[in-house]
Amino acid sequence: MKKVVSMLLLTAMIISSCFMFASCSKDEKYTIGVQSGTTGWSFVTGDADWGFTGFSNVTVSSFDTAALAVSDLLAGNVDFVVVDDAVAKTLVASNKGTKCIDIPLTTESYGISVDKSQSDLLANINTYLGENKTAIDALFTKYADVSDDNATTWAGEIITSATYDSSKTNQLVVATNAAFAPFEFTVGNGYAGIDMEMAKLIADSLDMELVIVNMEFDAITASLGKNGVDIGIAAMTINAVRSQVVNFSDPYYTEAYQVVICKDTDTLFDSCKTTDDMLAVLSGLNIK
């Protein structure tokens, strides 16, 4: 019995070492990198409620941030990254060797997610959004040139978060995923970005103290209404499934869409001009 066990162990050990080197050269499907829980993820994996069929001919690698997906793209483990357009432009600007195919894959609107139990807050936010369209548009222009490089040395406005105090009633607790330049990103101990400045403006207009809670993107929707979190502002696309769990404000940005990031030497999408062209190429990807 002992001999059998030790022979088994030995063969298993040898197999595991061979396995590792064999896996270096495998016949593989194409891999698309996305951020967990985002529209990009649903788009590539498929989501019946949303109307995405997904791409079964492709392997999906879902990371905690889009930046990690892009670094994996550069490392060669991922073939394309699918992410929101504004973020894509920022990532491409700071990652040499990548390019963004600026053809919309989807049409999306961003909204502010609000805890379902706070309908007053929702109404107030909608009022603010309705009255301050110009201010918000100005933010978009302001952050148009942000790239991840200058994001860390951002010399512009930095939003600081107050400390959460459960006894205070005038705190606006905002959940976000601050790894999504130009919408939200960290600068030292503070935050900056379109969404962050918008949060400050809203908090000021409601006479509330701004508290920002930074978390994983897919945790945001589930975090509303718990531990004092009031709203979520994170370049979040309004969709039916999320709307079952949270209320969305009126859209504050209606021209969002997913795009593909690939290596700048990639020619796969060169002949694409329309959304349908892109979808055709993506569905047609076979074994490499």
Binding site: M20, S23, C24, S61, A75, N77
Partner: peptide
Amino acid sequence: FVLIPSIGLNLDKVA
């Protein structure tokens, strides 16, 4: 994210 790319190997994630 650091070592494997720097050696230039293209190993499968699971490996």
